[in-house]
Design a protein around this nucleic acid. Structure first.
Lengths: 226, 226
DNA sequence: CAAGCCCATATTGTCGACAAACTATGCTGG
DNA sequence: CCAGCATAGTTTGTCGACAATATGGGCTTG
């Protein structure tokens, strides 16, 4: 009895993916009131699967719903966005620690290779934000799965990352930051390669802390208006 | 335009609550394969709202679903259960720290009064596990909301607690532990009352760490079979 | 002229039936 | 006697229509 994992993709899954990417990419902006019929015609779906997808999105915190009053894309206040980074800080710290204890040598090697690829991408793009964002996402993704902590990875990859990515396009990093971030990534991987979980956790927390302070600064400068 | 919060409870919400409590209370045991029609007749619902509730429960990790093959209550392995406590440790630690910074004096006073009530409950019940469990839940609930970190509270109260409570009835604390746990609670509240966030975080992490080690010991003893 | 109420409309919540897919039983062949 | 396959049955996924409710505009009234 092989676990063939039939993996038949259902309409609801399709709807879920469509909506999630639409929200993350900004096609559905925060605060938008979205009607079910609009969405149906937009993604060529029927209301049944759509509603199921909406329920899932709501449960993940990307949508807010009021009975009989429609569904809106969640709109984070500045303080909520900052709080999100505090959560990321500790959770990714734990992920880094456990990754240092559990990643295979092969995975670590792949991770280092990934960083090399990121470096060339950044050089070619002259520090453009987009590639940095993708590379950053890739890096944190690998750490999360490498922790072998299923629930932790699920929470990071399923909940937090999508919310952060929602606001990513407004959080363009300042010039020169890509290189510095890459350096921080390298030091984290070094710690992991040396199986030093404590150091990996410390460096990861500081890495995300820097990002949080960067955002807080921009908010105080009034550059970032949400 | 007062925000009257119409709060009309929909059938889907009803279904969601019913299922969640049924899972937590153990009426639906981990690993059970549950048919939609069974559930409909059981809770007197129709399949539409039920499916929406199932989607939400799946998204929260309490159910696993395979297309066309039914839905089962999630069954945690021992390692997954332990990993859950590692996540709780850091998240509740953060909650305690932020609660120390942000709870109102009134909330802190209420929290202390709650602990007094717990003490009498434990004495009356001669350390019976059930009251301890309820009191423990209440305590951690207040800390989470007191952190004023919406997302953090949402993750703790919405996701983690229900998974932990699912296995609570098997995790009966050893004799005498209720009193010790209460003592730990008191010290945490003391730290919060003194607005010492760092200490509150430390004590909370140690508190949950103790619970985790307790479980690990029981698993190694073979007492706890999941 | 402003504020509050009432009603029409459009949207959401709910229901029952149809179609597609997996599971299990029985049969055939080696 | 066991293994593999085909088929029947049950369960899930999907669809369209009906009912309930919040929003917004117009009206009345102070």
């Amino acid at each position: 009895m092989l676990d063939t994992t039939p993996q038949t993709y259902t309409r609801a899954d399709e709807a879920f993916d469509c909506l999630q990417t639409a929200i993350v990419k900004g096609d559905l902006a925060p605060g938008d009131k979205i009607g079910e019929l609009d969405l149906c015609s937009r993604f060529d779906l029927t209301r049944g699967p759509l509603r199921e997808a909406l329920g899932r999105l709501e449960s993940r915190g990307l949508l807010v719903r009021r009975p009989h009053a429609g569904v809106r894309v969640v709109s984070l206040s500045t303080t909520e966005l900052v709080e999100l980074y505090r959560i990321r800080e500790i959770m990714e710290g734990l992920a880094a620690r456990q990754a240092a204890e559990r990643m295979t040598d092969q995975e670590i090697a792949d991770l280092q290779a990934t960083l090399d690829a990121h470096e060339t991408m950044i050089d070619e793009a002259h520090g453009q934000a987009y590639y940095q964002a993708e590379g950053d996402y890739d890096f944190h993704h690998r750490i999360a799965t490498g922790s072998r902590n299923v629930k932790l990875a699920q929470m990071l990859l399923g909940d937090l990352y999508y919310m952060v990515r929602m606001y990513r396009y407004r959080l363009s990093t300042s010039a020169g930051r890509p290189h510095r971030a890459l350096g921080e990534h390298r030091r984290i991987v070094e710690a992991i390669a040396q199986r030093d979980g404590e150091l990996a956790e410390f460096l990861m927390k500081r890495h995300i802390n820097a990002a949080r302070k960067n955002i807080e600064k921009k908010i105080q400068e009034g550059v970032l208006t949400i």
